[in-house]
Every structure is written in structure tokens, then in C-alpha cells.
């Protein structure tokens, strides 16, 4: 992958709250994987989980 392409693309992690369905997008950090426990939901306080990891442009 060229350096320029790497700059334009970023890997994001989507966390979802299993209770209220709220989704949160954050930057990928090493060790993240789909299904792992995430942060705490700001709305209901439940434990979120990583639903998706993908690359997006911009």
C-alpha cells in the first residue's frame, strides 16, 4: 500500500451497546477485534462490544 493511500485511509472500530443499540465510532488501536468488550455506554451504562472494524476514506 502506498504511503499516500495509507494517509487517506483510516481504520475505524464501531462499538455497539447491546441494550440500547447506540453505536460509537472510534480509531482502531492494536489488539482490537470484532466481538471484544468495548467501553461503557454513555446512555445506559451497559458494556458495549466491538461490532465492526473496517477501513474508510478521508
Amino acid at each position: 500500500m502506498s504511503e499516500r493511500k495509507l494517509e487517506l485511509e483510516r481504520i475505524v472500530v464501531v462499538e455497539e451497546c447491546p441494550k440500547c443499540g447506540v453505536m460509537l465510532k472510534r480509531k482502531f488501536s492494536e489488539g482490537d477485534y470484532v466481538g471484544m468488550p468495548g467501553g461503557t455506554c454513555r446512555f445506559c451504562g451497559s458494556r458495549m462490544y466491538v461490532k465492526m472494524i473496517y477501513k474508510e476514506h478521508g
Binding site: F28, Y33, G35
Partner: peptide, 16 residues
């Protein structure tokens, strides 16, 4: 990086 690849859509669907 240990990031899912496009071929992983099957395991992603079932894993969730």
C-alpha cells in the same frame, strides 16, 4: 494489524 479482511464477511456474520 490483526484487522479483518474482506474474505472475513462470513465469519463476521456468524461471529456476531
Amino acid at each position: 494489524k490483526g484487522v479483518p479482511i474482506g474474505d472475513g464477511i462470513g465469519p463476521l456474520s456468524v461471529g456476531l
